[in-house]
Design a protein around this nucleic acid. Structure first.
Length: 424
RNA sequence: GGAGGAGUGGCAGAGUGGUUGAAUGCACUGGUCUUGAAAACCAGCAGGGGUGAAAGCCCCUCGGGGGUUCGAAUCCCUCCUCCUCCGCCA
């Protein structure tokens, strides 16, 4: 959520910055609502104040044994007026709230301006695409030939966008997740969490999934509606919801390996082959909670932690910075890591690392006590995939394939596979 | 699923209709004292919001929401969470 003060005091400037994100805000309508809010709120609080004072004086008069009936009549009349005012006020505030919660975060000044993914900027490239002296296959052909990947049976039991893994391929998938988790906890200082996969609406609101993107999430139908998390970012960031952290607790680095669930509404026909885009996939997520003045440093660091996984697996990738028009709703700045997939002859996203500044913490009421001011102030939140496990499996299958269709197991993964060097 | 109990400031814990946003203790911060520390003593110390150039003034919040009342931490309804016991169950 944007700071409401920005919209009140620097409206024109904020509207300009929102335009870069591809969002048009009706300035006039907003200003009109805001003016009404101000007037109503002042009036309502004034009435509350008067009522409070008079009620107190009734208490005092009664204690002194005076006749309080005239006072009672007078204050009674105020009640109706107050009710009217506060009803109208909450209506206006609700309308303002609807507008504000639907606005995306503003982009950091270092983010390239652009309208779509075509305007994203490559900032780094690591590794070299392997040269094959045979015809490469994609992960689906490889996985099926190995007898370890089955989309048809999965579709029969669950529908499209699900994949069954089995045997050594399933084990490789598991090994990759274990490897990532171990690297982040043992080398990068993250604390491992095992988190709920179902959360309430409040929690989804905190990280920005609600109310605007309700259609993207799976929701339960029992009386207490719960959402299946689309990413562990939701649970990890919400660890600090409604809390005031001490300076010593920052930065907080947390990670979790979870299943993630996405409806992929609106992506019909996109990436239908294989396990690039699934309703259910696994991901090792990295989240950092930092002091505001250290979040951009942490953003570079966190992205580096994700890159370390790709480097250890010797998977070629490039790092791009998303332009203002292509960033996620809550983000101020996002790096995407795209891994080289020989089977598709292109780079595909395998990690997305974002600094959300105080956009999520304002929604979550996540604060720290700044020793300089002595006051609670909003923390900054960052998240990144480290990495998407399913897509990492895809990348390993395609990059490590041999002419006979077997897969060489990456060296760093072998100890997680009982020393296995090759899957055939 | 059934029966009972409980949710108050960072923590503990008073408070059952009227200057209570809240006693007291601990913790924390500053000061006095001390060579220094401790102890003792003094003082400060919830969060959110509105308005204002600022100082300040004002409003809201005692798990969430609603109600009764001139007035609610206190009474009523409802939901949530936690604890104990019974039942069921991975």
């Amino acid at each position: 959520m944007l700071d409401p003060q920005l919209l009140r005091n620097q409206l024109a400037d904020t509207v300009d910055k929102l335009k870069l994100r591809g969002v048009e805000l009706d300035t006039e309508a907003f200003e009109s609502l805001e003016a009404q809010r101000k007037e109503l709120q002042v009036a309502t609080e004034q009435l509350q104040s008067e009522r409070k004072q008079r009620s107190k004086s009734i208490g005092q008069a009664k204690a002194q044994g005076q006749d309080i009936q005239p006072l009672l009549d007078e204050v009674s009349a105020m009640g109706d007026q107050l009710d009217q005012h506060s009803a109208r006020l909450s209506e206006i505030q609700g309308q303002l709230q609807d507008i504000v919660t639907g606005l995306p975060n503003l982009a950091h000044e270092s983010v390239p301006v652009g309208a779509s993914e075509d305007d994203n900027v490559e900032v780094d490239r690591w590794g070299e695409a392997r040269q094959f002296d045979f015809e490469v296959q994609d992960h689906v052909a490889l996985g099926e030939a190995l007898g370890g990947m089955d989309g048809e049976t999965a579709a029969r039991m669950a529908g499209s966008r699900f994949t069954l893994l089995s045997g050594p391929v399933a084990r490789l998938h598991r090994a990759l997740a274990q490897f990532m988790l171990d690297m982040h906890t043992q080398q990068h200082g993250y604390r491992e969490f095992n988190v709920p996969l179902l959360v309430n609406a409040q929690t989804m609101f905190g990280t920005g999934q609600l109310p605007k993107f309700a259609d993207d999430a799976f929701i339960t139908t029992d009386e207490n509606e719960r959402y299946l998390i689309p990413t562990a970012e939701v649970t990890l960031a919400n660890l600090v919801a409604d809390t005031i952290l001490t300076p010593e607790q920052l930065p907080m680095r947390v990670t979790a390996h979870t299943a993630c669930f996405r409806r992929e509404a609106g992506s019909y026909g996109k990436d239908t082959r294989g396990m690039i885009r699934q309703h259910q996939f696994e991901k090792v997520e990295l989240v950092q909670i930092t002091r505001p003045d250290q979040s951009y440093e942490a953003h570079e660091e966190l992205t580096g932690h994700a890159e370390k996984v790709l480097q250890a697996l010797e998977l070629p990738y490039r790092k791009i910075v998303l332009c203002t028009g292509d960033m996620g709703f809550a983000s101020s700045k996002t790096y995407d890591l795209e891994v080289w997939l020989p089977g598709q002859n292109q780079y595909r996203e395998i990690s997305s690392c974002s600094n959300c500044e105080d956009f999520q913490s304002r929604r979550m009421k996540a604060r720290w006590r700044n020793p300089d001011s002595g006051k609670p102030e909003l923390v900054h939140t960052l998240n990144g995939s480290g990495l998407a496990v399913g897509r990492t499996l895809v990348a390993v299958l395609e990059n490590y394939q041999q002419s006979d269709g077997s897969i060489t197991v990456p060296e760093v993964i072998r100890s997680y596979m009982g020393g296995l060097k090759s899957i055939s």
